[in-house]
Design a binder for these strands. Structure first.
Length: 258
DNA sequence: ATGGTAGCGCTGCTA
């Protein structure tokens, strides 16, 4: 079973690239973030033509999350439900069960700048995510949280820690909230496979950062122990960041044994 | 030199 996550930065603008990637990489499940679509704007037929069913949660313009699956998609859920959402109104969480694995697709708020209100609510959102997991799920069940976490967990996950001093994505508080998710019972699947630094999932569009390989590892696939036991492979497909009209994120996927 | 690019949508916000 191949499970992928990709911040597509507008599914409308990125549709040809996403369809091309589905055909090439053949994931069974793809979590998408920043679709920037309303539910009724989703190009469902384009996905169906490739064998995928899409579950979308979005209000249009900003945010928007979706799961495309070709191995079943049941038990739809979106948002935090009864748990207070610090970004209420934004579409940042959608979940479904695909072939026995609970898939949670998240788009963690960016936070903009340390000390701002949006940053404080980013911290709160990450805390609420753990609360939501505690309320609705168990570390004993096969579960995957895939998405754009907007957190680089360690210094080796950014191109130059000095350049990010005082910035979001690397602050102690953000990393603590990210660690708290792992403490609940999740493992960073990518780090189970790779130990190197300079492995990124996002590169700024500006100033030729991709070309200079100045990026950050902020997209993650976190898995519970039953999924970790099946983990065989992980990869960031940097080729998807090249060429015409790329997203600023590359897709990340994991392969699980049957 | 507080820059640079992309998306949405038409003004400036978000990332």
């Amino acid at each position: 079973m191949r499970i992928a996550t990709w911040n597509v930065n507008s599914l409308k603008a990125r549709l040809p690239r996403v369809l091309e990637w589905l055909e090439m990489a053949q994931p069974d499940v793809l979590c998408m973030q920043e679709t920037k679509l309303a539910d009724d704007q989703v190009p469902a037929l384009d996905f169906e033509a490739l064998g995928y069913t899409v579950l979308h949660h979005g209000e249009g313009r900003w945010n928007g999350v979706a799961i495309a699956s070709r191995c079943g998609i049941d038990g739809h859920a979106s948002g935090f439900g009864d748990i207070e959402d610090p970004y209420v109104g934004d579409a940042r969480l959608v979940a479904a069960t695909c072939d026995g694995v609970r898939i949670v697709c998240v788009y963690v708020p960016n936070g903009r700048a340390v000390g701002t209100d949006t940053y404080e609510r980013k911290l709160a959102w990450l805390h609420r995510l753990r609360e939501w997991l505690e309320t609705h799920h168990s570390p004993d069940q096969p579960l995957v949280v895939g998405g754009d976490f907007n957190v680089a967990p360690e210094d080796r996950d950014v191109y130059d820690p000095a350049a990010f001093e005082g910035a979001t994505h690397v602050s102690e508080a953000e990393r603590k909230r990210f660690e708290a998710l792992k403490e609940w019972g999740l493992v960073d699947a990518f780090r189970e496979i790779y130990d190197s630094d300079r492995l990124y999932t996002w590169w700024d569009y500006r100033a030729g950062h991709f070309h200079k390989h100045l990026g950050m590892r902020i997209d993650h696939i976190l898995v519970t122990e039953p999924v970790r036991a099946r983990l065989r492979y992980a990869l960031v497909d940097r080729n998807a960041r090249k060429g015409e009209k790329p997203s600023d994120h590359a897709p990340l996927f994991v392969d699980l044994a049957d």
